[in-house]
Amino acid sequence: MKAFVVDKFGPPEDLTRTDVPDPVAGPQDVVVDINAAGVGFVDGLLVQGLYQVKPPLPFVPGNEFAGVISAVGGDVKNLSVGQRVMGTAAGSYADKLKAPALLCIPTSADMTDEIAAGFAISYATALYAWRDCGKALTGETALVLGASGGVGQAAIAVGKAMGLRIIGAAATEDKRAAAKAAGADETVDYTQPNWRDELKQLTAKSGLDLVYDPVGGDAAEAAMRSLSPGGRHLVVGFAAGDIPKVGLNIPLLKRCSIVGADWGGEIRANPVLAAEQFATLLEWFAQRKMTPAPVTTRAMAELPQALRDQLDRKLVGKLVMVN
């Protein structure tokens, strides 16, 4: 089969597609023929060796997928050959991958592979962050940083399903329009020097209840300073590239909390939790309580440029590679 292989850490432009052996399912695994694979900011960091966790070399990048099962391990009882599935597992930028059965979810008939390939990580992260980490309550007001990207749009969709009022923060008019199209109630330009004043107006000076922060950088501290007493700042990632060093006087004086929302770390520690999260999200999808944002697609062969565009923050919404 064909796969993109990282033999040494470096820029995504150095990636090449090569022949590798087909994967073989272990007792609790399935092999999936990949139809589509989601692109995330983390993927571009991993191939450069810049993420907090460095996979051993060589490895096939990519972490989310949709496709059809072509083989099942002997201990797998809930999945079968020929079944459409989506999920998360390392190695999705390939023709096939081996995935733990626990992290594969049957794809509903009315969800396309393209939507499914960008669903598992971003939407499960949003549910984990809002519900399990942030203890979000219906009617609360939340700010989503990076609201036009795939992670931000998923946070908007899940937040709206939970009854939150969402303010989307994005840097350009087109990106703010994308956040509104994804369901944000209001938007702000967080590159403007007075953007916190706009937040005060939008919250009637009462402050934010929650901040969903996959961006970091300079925006993080300003957003945290806009929290109300009892507010929760959910740390999801650092797409800006800089990990902010926030003074602990802010949570002290604001009487707010900083909460880490690392869904991947939680699932690696407790993989059985994924099934309930996916079931909840798919139930909301079936009930039309939650509508995933549209995705854009490119051919799998274009992966190196796709990762570069993701790292340079040129993308709006979720990008999915298709075989």
Rank of each mutant, 00 (worst) to 15 (best):
Q83H: 10
N63V: 06
F65H: 09
L45T: 03
V72A: 12
A89T: 08
Y93S: 03
G67W: 05
V68P: 06
Q83L: 11
F65K: 07
S70I: 08
G73R: 05
Q52P: 04
A66N: 08
G62F: 09
K98V: 10
G73C: 03
G73H: 02
A66Y: 09
Y51T: 10
T88F: 14
S80W: 09
G49E: 02
P61A: 13
G44P: 09
V42A: 14
V76S: 08
K98M: 09
A71T: 05
L79R: 09
V76G: 08
P56L: 10
L45I: 07
M86S: 10
A90P: 01
V76N: 06
G49I: 03
V76W: 10
A89R: 02
G82T: 05
L79T: 06
G49D: 01
M86Y: 15
G74M: 07
A94V: 07
L45K: 08
V53W: 12
G40R: 09
D95Q: 15
L50Q: 15
Q48K: 14
K77S: 15
L50D: 13
V47Y: 03
G74K: 13
K77M: 12
D75T: 06
V68L: 04
L79W: 13
D75L: 12
P61Y: 08
K96Q: 15
N63C: 14
S70Y: 02
V68D: 10
R84C: 11
Y93H: 10
V72L: 01
V81L: 11
K96H: 14
Q52W: 05
P55V: 04
I69M: 01
R84H: 14
P58R: 04
Q48N: 04
E64R: 08
V68A: 06
E64T: 08
T88G: 11
V68E: 13
Q83K: 13
S70N: 04
L50K: 15
